[in-house]
Each structure stands twice: as C-alpha cells, then as structure tokens.
Design a protein around this nucleic acid. Structure first.
Length: 104
DNA sequence: CTGGTGACAGGAA
DNA sequence: TTTCCTGCCACCA
C-alpha cells in the first residue's frame, strides 16, 4: 500500500543491501518501485537522522563514486564505512561495480 | 500555485 | 576513456 511518501520504500530498499556490497541510486529506486527516479533516492537518504540504522553508506552513484554533498566530512565517512566492510576503492577513488555491486 | 533545486543517470562529444 | 549536458520530478520556500 502507498504510505505517506515514497521515502519509506526507499529506506526499506536501502536496508536490504548486504554488508560489503553497494547499490546505485538508480538500482535502489528501481527496487523501491520507482524506476527512473534515482534523484529521489538521494533526497530520501538526506532526510535520514544521524542515528538511523539504514545503511545509507552502501548507496553510490552509477559510476561507483561517493556522491559529492554539502558536508565533505560525510563523504569521507562513507568511504571509511565501506572500506571497513571490505569494499575496495581503486586509484581514482571509485568502486569497481563489477565486483561489489549488489545483485538483488 | 510557481519556480528553483538536487547524495542521479545516460547519452553525446 | 572522461567530461559535459540534458531530462527527470518530488520537495520545499
């Protein structure tokens, strides 16, 4: 059933991403039943409280990059959290999606 | 209601 | 390959 907004569904989709794997914004949108609305995923993640249990750090751009945002510290934190899970970044600071992308 | 914005993606050059 | 440009549409002021 449709709830208050699509944000809840997006959060639920992100929660399904297993540790050590990543999913793209577009991928999350599709799994949330919102194909083509990747931008909305970024919006939804931005609304998450800091103490949220949603693994927001496992969502990256279609190019395997940690998306830029207003607070650079968060970008660094995201990369750190992913590396702690075993995700590897290449020399250009990108994640090889062929190896780490979550195949739902 | 109207207009600006964005944690994107895909195609063009 | 990489960078640039455009379409997209829910949100917010």
């Amino acid at each position: 059933m449709i709830t208050y907004s699509h944000l809840d569904r997006i959060h639920a989709a992100v929660a399904e991403i297993p540790p050590g794997r990543v999913a793209t914004y577009g991928q999350v949108a599709e799994r949330a039943g919102l194909p083509g609305r990747a931008r909305l995923v970024g919006y939804a993640l931005r609304r998450l409280p800091e103490d949220s249990a949603i693994p927001w750090h496992r969502v990256v751009s279609a190019r395997g990059e940690v998306s830029a945002r207003s607070a650079p510290a968060e970008e660094k934190e995201q990369r750190l959290l992913l590396e702690e899970e075993g995700v590897v970044f290449d020399r250009r600071g990108r994640i090889p999606l062929a190896a780490f992308r979550w195949e739902g």
